[in-house]
Simulated assay, not measured.
Amino acid sequence: MTKIFGHRGAAGHFPENTMLSFQAAYECGADGIELDVHKSKDGELVVIHDEKINRTTNGKGYVKDHTYDELKSFNAAVKWPEYSFQVIPRLEDVLEWIAKKPLYLNIELKNNVLFYRDIEEKLVRLLRKHKLTEQIILSSFNHDSMLKIARTNPEYEVALLLSDKMHRPWEYANRLNVNAIHPKWYHVNKRYLQRSRQYNVTVRPYTVNRTNMMKQLILNGCDALITDLPDKAVKLRDELLLH
């Protein structure tokens, strides 16, 4: 059965990467949530997508140039006036919330544009502190970062994020001894999924919001899909399973 991951929570209907958005994805029946992690000036792992806070909050500047005390003073729901003030969460806040829930958590390290010293080590320490292994998936466009974690902490599943069309990505994953890829949704078709299965590579395309593509991926047995609209995807999957 195709698993449904809420992209930045339920970002189609709620302010992305907030506890409000994560709770909404959980309540609509998603199997997991996906979120993004940067590092603050004082070393906290914080949940936000962009390198800068300008787009999603009422603050300005780079995440890396603010302490977490400063970051939490900005409203992460500023573009969503129908919702009250939302704090930029620490990753630890999310880990505490998800620890006792039957949810997968896909943590994307946003270290492909800026370099965050020792971010992998800090992430693993937090996961160990909260005794989280089985439900965790780590991903990044920085494949060196993922290989670093895979070599030193093989208990965690890592996935390679792919933005461009790649020739035989399942072979690339096999060469790197990685068993999951997260490609752009429009690169994935029935043959892509078949070949990946032959190589034992899990495929979780992002960001799948169109009904016809959701349906195609589900009917073709895609392992999971990452969507801004987990409520829509869960309902569609369940309807298809009934037939």
Rank of each mutant, 00 (worst) to 15 (best):
D223S: 14
V203N: 07
K110A: 00
Y206V: 03
M1G: 13
L123V: 05
E157Y: 12
K52C: 10
E108P: 00
R197D: 13
P81G: 07
K184C: 07
V94Q: 10
L236S: 01
M214W: 05
A77L: 05
I33K: 08
K39G: 10
D223N: 15
H13P: 01
L225N: 03
C28I: 00
N177L: 12
I218A: 02
L95D: 14
I149A: 04
L109T: 05
A233L: 02
R151T: 11
N220A: 09
R175G: 13
I137D: 06
N112H: 15
T2D: 07
E82I: 12
H38Y: 05
L71M: 10
N189A: 04
T57G: 08
T2Y: 07
K100W: 13
N75M: 08
I149G: 04
V203W: 09
E171H: 14
L241W: 08
G6I: 01
K64I: 12
I98M: 13
A180T: 13
S84Y: 05
Y26T: 03
K41D: 02
L219S: 13
I33N: 07
V201L: 07
M1C: 08
K101G: 10
A224D: 02
M214I: 07
G32L: 01
I137E: 13
L160F: 15
G29F: 03
I88M: 10
L123G: 06
E120M: 06
P205R: 02
D42F: 08
E51M: 09
H13W: 09
N58T: 05
N58G: 08
T207G: 03
E171I: 15
Q86C: 13
N142F: 00
Y62L: 15
N111K: 01
G43H: 06
E239Y: 09
N111I: 00
G9K: 05
I226R: 00
A10P: 06
E120N: 11
L217D: 06
F115A: 13
I137S: 09
G221M: 11
H13R: 11
A10R: 10
V46I: 04
H7W: 03
I137F: 10
I181L: 12
Y116R: 03
L229F: 15
G12L: 03
Q23A: 12
V78N: 07
D93V: 11
I4L: 04
T18R: 02
H13Y: 14
F74R: 04
E70N: 11
Y83R: 05
L242W: 04
R151Y: 13
V94G: 07
Y83T: 05
T18C: 04
M214N: 04
I218N: 01
L127D: 07
G12E: 02
V158R: 11
F141E: 02
N54D: 15
I107R: 02
G6K: 01
H130A: 10
W97E: 06
L45Q: 01
I226H: 00
R117S: 13
A224W: 05
D93Y: 07
N177K: 14
A99I: 11
L162E: 11
E239K: 10
K148Q: 12
M1I: 11
T152W: 09
L132I: 03
D238R: 09
Q198G: 15
V87F: 09
P230W: 01
M213G: 03
V63G: 03
S21A: 03
R128V: 06
